[in-house]
Amino acid sequence: MNDLLAMLAQRVDDAARNAHAIAQFGEDERLTTSDAYAIQAASIACRLERGECRSGVKMGFTSRAKMVQMGVHDVIWGRLTDKMALEEGAPVSLARYVHPRVEPELAFLLARPLAPNASLVEALDAVAAIAPALEVIDSRYENFKFSLTDVIADNASSSGYVIGPWADPRRDFSNLGLVLSIDGKPRQIGSTAGILGHPLRSLVSAARLAAAAGEPLQAGWIVMAGGATAAEALAPGMHVRCEMQSLGSVEFSTIG
Rank of each mutant, 00 (worst) to 15 (best):
residue 218 Q to I: 03
residue 140 R to K: 14
residue 188 Q to W: 00
residue 42 A to Q: 14
residue 63 S to I: 03
residue 30 R to A: 15
residue 146 F to I: 09
residue 157 S to K: 13
residue 229 T to H: 11
residue 119 S to L: 05
residue 49 E to V: 04
residue 212 A to I: 10
residue 228 A to L: 04
residue 21 A to G: 11
residue 74 D to S: 13
residue 209 L to N: 01
residue 72 V to R: 12
residue 115 A to C: 09
residue 207 A to Y: 02
residue 27 E to R: 01
residue 161 Y to D: 04
residue 180 L to I: 09
residue 113 P to R: 07
residue 141 Y to K: 07
residue 174 S to G: 14
residue 167 A to F: 01
residue 113 P to Q: 09
residue 155 N to I: 14
residue 235 A to P: 04
residue 219 A to V: 12
residue 60 G to H: 06
residue 139 S to V: 05
residue 14 D to W: 06
residue 44 I to D: 06
residue 96 R to M: 13
residue 6 A to F: 00
residue 29 E to W: 00
residue 225 A to W: 03
residue 43 S to Y: 14
residue 201 R to C: 04
residue 152 I to Y: 00
residue 161 Y to G: 02
residue 207 A to W: 05
residue 254 T to M: 02
residue 47 R to L: 13
residue 37 Y to Q: 02
residue 106 L to P: 07
residue 145 K to G: 06
residue 252 F to V: 01
residue 105 E to H: 09
residue 115 A to Q: 09
residue 212 A to W: 13
residue 102 V to L: 11
residue 48 L to S: 12
residue 183 D to Q: 13
residue 252 F to T: 08
residue 119 S to Y: 09
residue 234 L to G: 11
residue 136 V to Q: 01
residue 209 L to A: 09
residue 67 M to N: 04
residue 80 L to V: 04
residue 104 P to C: 06
residue 98 V to R: 15
residue 140 R to H: 09
residue 5 L to Y: 00
residue 220 G to Q: 08
residue 216 P to K: 10
residue 197 G to M: 08
residue 176 L to A: 02
residue 194 G to M: 02
residue 117 N to M: 06
residue 205 S to V: 05
residue 113 P to V: 06
residue 11 R to A: 11
residue 63 S to K: 15
residue 162 V to N: 01
residue 12 V to L: 13
residue 150 D to V: 00
residue 140 R to L: 12
residue 217 L to T: 11
residue 245 Q to C: 09
residue 57 V to D: 01
residue 102 V to R: 08
residue 58 K to M: 10
residue 88 E to N: 14
residue 224 M to C: 03
residue 220 G to V: 08
residue 122 E to H: 12
residue 256 G to T: 09
residue 160 G to M: 12
residue 183 D to K: 10
residue 1 M to S: 14
residue 227 G to Q: 06
residue 238 M to E: 12
residue 104 P to Y: 02
residue 28 D to H: 05
residue 79 R to T: 13
residue 124 L to R: 14
residue 130 I to V: 15
residue 156 A to H: 08
residue 176 L to I: 01
residue 45 A to Q: 15
residue 141 Y to V: 07
residue 189 I to F: 04
residue 50 R to K: 15
residue 147 S to A: 12
residue 33 T to S: 06
residue 82 D to C: 06
residue 33 T to P: 00
residue 194 G to V: 04
residue 67 M to A: 11
residue 8 L to Y: 02
residue 243 E to Y: 00
residue 171 R to A: 13
residue 45 A to G: 12
residue 104 P to K: 09
residue 115 A to D: 02
residue 41 A to F: 07
residue 233 A to Q: 12
residue 49 E to I: 02
residue 242 C to R: 00
residue 250 V to P: 01
residue 113 P to A: 05
residue 187 R to C: 13
residue 159 S to R: 15
residue 88 E to C: 13
residue 69 Q to F: 10
residue 176 L to R: 01
residue 14 D to V: 07
residue 137 I to A: 10
